[in-house]
Simulated assay, not measured.
Amino acid sequence: MIISRTPFRISFAGGGSDLPSFYHRETGAVLSSSINKYMYIAIHPFFDKSRIQLKYSKTELVDDINAIHHPIFREVLKMYNLTGVDLNSIADIPSGTGLGSSSAFTVGLLNAVRTYAGKATSGEKLGRLACEVEINKVGSPIGKQDQYAAACGGLNFITFYGDETVNVEKIIMAPERKKELDENLIMVFVGGEHSANSILRDQAAAIGDRKKFETQKAMVQLAYQLRSSLEAGELDDFGKILHEGWMMKKSLVSGISTGVVDELYDRGIKSGALGGKLLGAGGAGFILFYCPQEKQEEFRTRMGDLNEMNFHFDHYGSKIIYVGDTFND
């Protein structure tokens, strides 16, 4: 048996510029971090070598790869012509909550399958392959940031170029300042699940509007500004940048926010947070707040009716955490 562990991510600035409708016109950039909430994929030989068994929210038992209903399982197994296996997925967080679960699944599946096939893979290659699967093979109208964030792990500045290349740079911070940043972030669940594909289709179309394209460009500049602040060890502007980015993002597409999200966000700001944003494409899921530690007791008192998810930064990206003595154990 082989087990991969792949982190989910939180994005701070520049989201949306990883869509081809933007980076084919201007260089895109996002600043994000992986977190210690994970997708686990286990693969081991199936007793019937001519069949494939898959277990996720459903169970599939098929005789042919092309009969697999789950599109990502199907396309990855087709890439390696792999049969006679049993694959299982387990996640710390439900899908559709804005933490990049779909791409974490794809990256983790590729890592497990490639290891099973005896292939070593770098983080950036896993990110590239995951984009190939999700965008080109499955046809999802998504960007590229989630795949690289999950594959490479850590606090990163990720750049997207018109020739389809992607560059991942680690944000270098003093350990004590990075720890402070980690401790100043609070994530609360606002409920529901969103359809990222639907929102991202609308966002990609919106960027065709000149004014909204300029707004997206300004969001990219916030990512550069945030990188400079973090590398200088300055956290004072972190909440302000999150807030500015969220206000800009909301203006792109109506489905990104809702009345409930707006009310909870405003309450969080009044409770001591300096800024925040709804994570992911929008509509539902988790709101991330930046709240200094001296304000956190008041924040948690006033926001106590919401489910807070404790988390910390992940530093490693997708990893193989277990390999049996033989692949047939």
Rank of each mutant, 00 (worst) to 15 (best):
I2Y: 14
S11G: 15
F12R: 01
F12C: 03
G16I: 10
P20V: 04
S21A: 15
R25F: 12
T27G: 05
A29W: 11
S34N: 06
K37Q: 09
K37E: 04
Y38T: 02
H44Y: 12
P45K: 08
S50T: 12
I52Y: 12
L54Q: 00
K55T: 09
K58Y: 08
E60V: 06
D64G: 00
I65L: 14
I65C: 02
N66D: 10
N66M: 07
H70C: 08
F73V: 07
F73Q: 01
V76R: 00
V76Q: 00
L77T: 02
K78T: 09
M79T: 04
Y80A: 03
N81Q: 05
G84W: 01
L87G: 01
N88F: 15
A91V: 10
D92I: 10
A104E: 07
F105W: 09
N111I: 05
R114D: 05
K119R: 10
E124D: 14
K125C: 10
L126G: 04
G127K: 04
R128M: 11
V133L: 07
S140R: 13
P141D: 00
Q145D: 03
D146S: 05
A149R: 04
A150K: 06
A151M: 07
A151N: 03
C152K: 04
L155M: 14
L155C: 08
F157I: 05
T159C: 09
Y161W: 08
G162F: 03
G162W: 06
E164L: 12
T165K: 10
T165E: 13
E169V: 13
E169A: 15
M173V: 11
P175S: 07
R177Y: 14
K178N: 11
L185R: 02
L185C: 12
V188A: 04
H194W: 13
S195H: 14
D202G: 07
A204P: 00
I207N: 08
I207P: 03
G208F: 15
R210A: 15
K212G: 03
F213I: 07
E214Q: 15
E214N: 13
T215S: 10
A218K: 14
A218Y: 14
V220P: 03
V220T: 07
V220Q: 01
Q221G: 13
A232C: 13
F238A: 05
F238I: 11
H243E: 12
H243K: 13
W246C: 00
K249Q: 11
V253S: 08
V253F: 06
G255R: 15
I256P: 00
I256A: 08
I269M: 15
S271H: 08
L274K: 12
L278C: 05
G280L: 06
G283F: 11
F286W: 13
F286H: 14
F289K: 02
F289N: 00
Q293P: 08
Q293A: 09
E294H: 10
F299Y: 09
F299G: 01
F299D: 04
R300P: 12
R302G: 09
M303L: 13
G304R: 06
G304D: 02
N307D: 03
M309Y: 08
H312M: 11
H315C: 04
G317D: 01
I321F: 11
T326Q: 03
F327V: 12
D329I: 08
